[in-house]
Computed example of a mutant assay.
Amino acid sequence: MKKILVVDNNKVVVRLLATILRQKGFLVASAEDGLAALDLLDSFRPDIMLIDLIMPRINGEKLCRIIRKMPEYDSLFIIIISAIAAEEKIDFFEFGADACIAKGPAKRMEENLTTVLDFFQNERKDELTKKIFGEENIFERQITKELLATKRHLEATLDNLDVGLLELNAAGQVISVNAAALQLFQCQEEKFLANQFSLFFQGEEENQIKKILATLDSEIVELGESAPVFLHGKFLLLKFVPFFDRGEKYIIVMVSDITRRKKAELDLLSHKEHLEDMVQERTATLEETNVELEEALCKVKTLSGLLPICANCKKIRDDKGYWNQIEMFIRDHSFAEFSHGICPDCVKTLYPELDIYEDDD
């Protein structure tokens, strides 16, 4: 029994297609979006997949690209079930699909699905062209055209930002990523989507990101400013922004390359440390020089050895042959200073008429 996996977020469409396929003898499983489909492939290996294009959490085009990168699904037959066939030209061959059926009246859809499945069962899928089965029965809708145009403009804006942007589900799996993020992480989109964001890091950084994702509630959290996050030779700043949509939590991760700023800060810090080392070294050198000068000065001003002195006037001869007053010589060759006075013996000799120092009777 052939297995078919129907991937569509519209429950009515899923029930309709599942009923038709079971009546034709297929074993049918379903998934509500691209992420759920990839998870289901671990336990359910289909022969055919019916994939809607417009879905949350990995759309149909990206799901096809991911699957076509899996060698085990080389022979998988992929049918696009499109609700926008009238509003947008779909090159489903380009992203790996084999056929495309426009969503429309249930009876027409069943007829077109039967036709396409006949090509597969009769091993004639190579005869399928880029024809969109059922497009003649649908009409353009203005609101759909406007929404698709808005979507294209938004995607162009996101892919031309310098900041990397990723969207994660509550479990931390990547469900969308822009071009800047792919460049920063050096990874193809097909290998990025549906994987755990934390697995793109290693060691302590991986553990920190796991903890942030597990505890993130309503507050924005940054990582990489004080404790650097280093990946592929770049310093990264990660900002985790939680938001809620229809009761489900999602996380926008903004990734900025702050390598130039961080290197400038490190260079500035290194220069500052170098200057501080130079100041300390110079200070130590000056202190050593001061000590040496003080020691030399002490040696210079220490009187020692034989001093020639006049026996009469008491002048001293210096090294250059000049005779100096004894107090001048001592002052110049020591740390001593003189204050002049007169001793009692000299008073008696010089001033005998004064009785200042006579002994009391």
Rank of each mutant, 00 (worst) to 15 (best):
E248R: 15
R57G: 01
K320C: 01
E248V: 02
L113A: 05
D74A: 11
G172R: 06
L117C: 09
I138Q: 04
K210I: 08
N324I: 00
Y322I: 01
R261D: 12
N122D: 08
A214T: 03
G164N: 06
R260T: 14
V300K: 15
C298V: 01
I58Y: 04
V291K: 15
R124K: 15
E281L: 12
F93C: 03
K234A: 09
C298R: 15
N160P: 04
V28A: 11
T19L: 07
I84W: 06
C343V: 06
V241K: 05
A83C: 01
F44R: 07
K151T: 12
R68N: 10
T157H: 09
I251Y: 07
C310Q: 03
I252V: 13
M1K: 12
C313I: 05
G224N: 09
L50Q: 05
E205Y: 04
I90C: 02
E206Q: 15
E123S: 13
L27G: 03
A99I: 10
C346D: 13
R124F: 03
E358S: 14
E88A: 14
I143G: 00
K103Y: 03
L269R: 14
D319H: 10
I101H: 07
V174Q: 01
Q121P: 00
D126T: 10
E205W: 02
E167R: 11
K315T: 04
H340G: 02
N195I: 00
G247I: 09
L158I: 04
E327H: 11
K315N: 13
E110P: 01
L41G: 05
L41D: 06
Q208G: 00
Q202G: 09
A99Y: 10
A179P: 01
